[in-house]
Design a protein around this nucleic acid. Structure first.
Lengths: 234, 234
DNA sequence: ATGTTTAAATTGGTCAACCAAATTGGTTAA
DNA sequence: TTAACCAATTTGGTTGACCAATTTAAACAT
């Protein structure tokens, strides 16, 4: 798993991509139909003249995107998705580029806006407590004039958790660190005084506490005003 | 990479989770600080009494979520994220469950609503052409009374591509197959006559063609009316 | 013929040995 | 004293051999 957001961790990428490309060709040429069993890893690695390791990495990537399904000791099967869609998705996977920061931020805004709304609707008492705890830690660090980036991150993660939507939570987990690392270099958020930032967080907490989805969204949009501007300008 | 949406493809999951858990302990106990270099894979596999393969899988998963960063021939480093956030994210990763269908659909609605809006704003001529082509294929299959699920999928993927947001596109790629497989079993969409479905698609295409974001969103919401109901009821 | 048992072959998963690149430390020459 | 070089060590990456579960088909009894 990883949603490969472009940062490919391992392997001579080109080799894996070659293998994926060849598998795609098999599907396009109808030598391999949706639902079919793939040839064994050994057979394929031989046929493609690639090592089994590289072939496994390729299959792992395909499985991550749900295009094939592995059954241990039994075989790997092409998902029952239309040939056109399979082809298109594989093309997409092959072209995956390291994501531009603007896309990242834009997506974060979407997800977190929804997360904060859902959190206001569904949060349990325990989740609310965790959010409040994170918020307090943020305050504590912040009023000492220290950099509270970590506490800020934790706060937002806890909100995502409280959305009670496992997929949103997962996606936030994936894109958040990417954003963090970019944040250090770019510095979008202008230096507000910390007390206003604390208030913005507090408004979000209150809205979630009061089960007020609309207010929660409104508060978040104020908090992310700079980010919105960053996305919508140029 | 994969966004692990819960479907863990390989490996004695428990073993990997044990390793991740132990690495988390190292961080909690401050034996490993953000930015630090991890001990070598060999050293860790020895220390944790796990095979190096399993340890690599664990690190791969952590890297996928951006919690560590690998540098070939040089070492693996803990991301410079606060200890609290690291801990929380690792806990999340460990608890990741196979996503419930409702979360999946809910997230799809969010992403695709945004995607369709952005597509209406940013689509290139080429992307528009691809969408139209997919739509025509859908029509062709549909008026013959055949099942056009695949063409439908391809249509929506092309819309996501036209959003010109690489992250949204990636995320859609990840969650879409999961939805498809669930769709077959559950059958949420009631059997509309195909002509109304075609018209709904056509409205979306037109809105994107006319660069009318609001109309695009409106059309999509009509098209996904059943899905919305599915999410908001019960 | 047919159904059942059993053994051989095939499967994806795992592992320990190996590889080349990168780092490191010491040595040497300026 | 400093800078440059070289070799030994350490690194993550890769590989081919091995494993156990599964599937297959052949052998056998009915």
């Amino acid at each position: 798993m990883r949603i490969n957001l472009g940062n490919d961790p391992l392997s001579s990428k080109t080799e894996v991509e070659t293998v994926i490309s060849k598998i795609r060709d098999l599907i396009i040429n109808r030598q391999l139909e949706p639902g079919d069993k793939l040839p064994s890893e050994r057979a394929l690695s031989n046929k493609f003249d690639a090592s089994r390791s590289q072939l496994r990495l390729a299959i792992q990537k395909l499985e991550f995107y749900g295009l094939v399904k592995r059954y241990p000791k039994s075989g790997t099967f092409v998902s029952k998705i239309g040939v056109g869609a399979l082809n298109s998705m594989m093309a997409n996977i092959l072209h995956l580029q390291t994501p531009d920061f603007k896309s990242l931020v834009e997506t974060r805004l979407i997800l977190e806006t929804k997360a904060v709304k859902l959190a206001a609707m569904r949060r349990t008492e325990k989740q609310l407590y965790q959010i409040e705890k994170a918020h307090e830690a943020y305050i504590k660090k912040s009023i000492n004039g220290q950099d509270a980036l970590d506490e800020d991150l934790l706060f937002h993660l806890k909100v995502a958790e409280a959305s009670c939507n496992s997929v949103i939570n997962s996606l936030m987990l994936v894109i958040t660190p990417e954003i963090i690392t970019n944040f250090v270099t770019k510095k979008i958020c202008d230096a507000q005084n910390f007390s206003s930032l604390i208030k913005e967080h507090q408004d979000i907490v209150n809205a979630i506490k009061n089960n007020d989805p609309d207010e929660a969204i409104k508060s978040l949009k104020i908090h992310f005003k700079d980010l919105y501007n960053y996305c919508h300008t140029n």
